[in-house]
Computed example of a mutant assay.
Amino acid sequence: MNLDEKMLLLATCFLFLPYQIASVGIACILVQAFCRHKLVDAIKNQTGAIFLYSFIGLEFIVTILHSNWTGLGNTWLFVLVGLYGAYYRKSITKNTFEKMCDLVIILSIFAAIYGLYQFNQISIANGRTFLEFHIFNSPKRRITSTFMNANIYAMVIDFVCVMCMYRFVKNDNILCKIGYVIVALFNFFVLYLTGSRTALLPFVLIFPIFLYCVRWKKLFITSIVLELCVCGLVFLKPSLIPRMSDMSTFASRIKIWKTAFICISMYPLFGWGPQTYKKFYP
């Protein structure tokens, strides 16, 4: 394994850290790649680079003109994403990708354990016990692990479960297969505790499609039957899905969407740059 592949594995570890720390770590990786003349070559071969960096340049101009300093900071994150994408594409190999998947799966265990700790602390602070599995509606009282909010963490778990499925198919070791199943189920349990309703929806499509693509017809049919049974149970008893029957957030979402349309109508061409929304809907 060469240095670039090791850097990709290190960057994978940063994904499970707060984004402020992760962005600094990614920046350091890009600096070392630049010093070794790897980054410039990667950018030259990056598909659509002219459009990507032109857009980022426009964002810099817009945020500065509107004194949107928070948005200016976010635009630098766009730069990091674009540059790292070029470096990743230049350095990735199949073997490294599979190691990255395994690393994500392992790190997800620690993230999930921390999520369980958060759930216990939230439960105690609100007069509940852990085993009640009471999931609150307020975003501030839902588990986030090391991520910004519950929905982002739930989205990460979705990807982790997909990686578990991929490695389950690619790995011939029976113990490893069992391990992937256990980790996927553990993460799915923590996903349930996040209270993210939308993150549950991808599973309705992901598992059957994946099983169909790998031509496991019996498991494909079984997954369809099981999902229909689960949908039937949820229809009869919506409380099985956390916050399913609680529509109190729907009214606030309508206000959010209306505000978004107002923002777009005020500055339809270039807007004010990233993070503008908070100026109109704190």
Rank of each mutant, 00 (worst) to 15 (best):
P208H: 04
A150K: 00
K170M: 02
V160N: 04
I221H: 08
N68E: 05
E227L: 02
I124P: 06
L116I: 03
F210H: 06
G48W: 05
F110D: 00
L39F: 04
G57C: 04
F261C: 15
T93C: 13
Y114R: 00
V169F: 09
S123C: 04
L52N: 11
R36D: 06
S223Q: 07
G179D: 04
D246F: 12
L77V: 09
I56A: 03
I106S: 05
S248I: 11
Q32E: 14
F220E: 04
Y277A: 14
P202M: 08
A251Y: 06
T144L: 00
E98W: 10
A184P: 12
T276G: 04
G232A: 01
K94C: 08
G71K: 12
T198N: 12
F188T: 08
W216F: 01
S248H: 08
S138F: 04
V230W: 06
K170L: 01
L80I: 10
V190S: 11
K94G: 13
Q20N: 00
T70G: 15
L15C: 07
L107D: 04
T96M: 08
F220N: 02
L77W: 11
H37E: 06
S196I: 06
I143W: 09
V204S: 03
Y153D: 01
D246L: 13
S23K: 11
N95I: 14
P274K: 06
L205A: 07
V104P: 09
F188P: 14
M100K: 05
M155I: 13
E98D: 14
E59P: 05
E59N: 10
V225T: 14
F133I: 08
L233T: 00
P268I: 13
L3F: 13
R89C: 00
V62A: 07
L185D: 06
R243D: 10
V190F: 12
L200C: 06
L10A: 04
V234L: 14
I206R: 03
I224H: 08
S54I: 13
D158G: 10
Q275N: 15
A154M: 02
H134A: 09
L191A: 09
I135W: 14
P18A: 01
N2H: 00
T70F: 12
I221V: 12
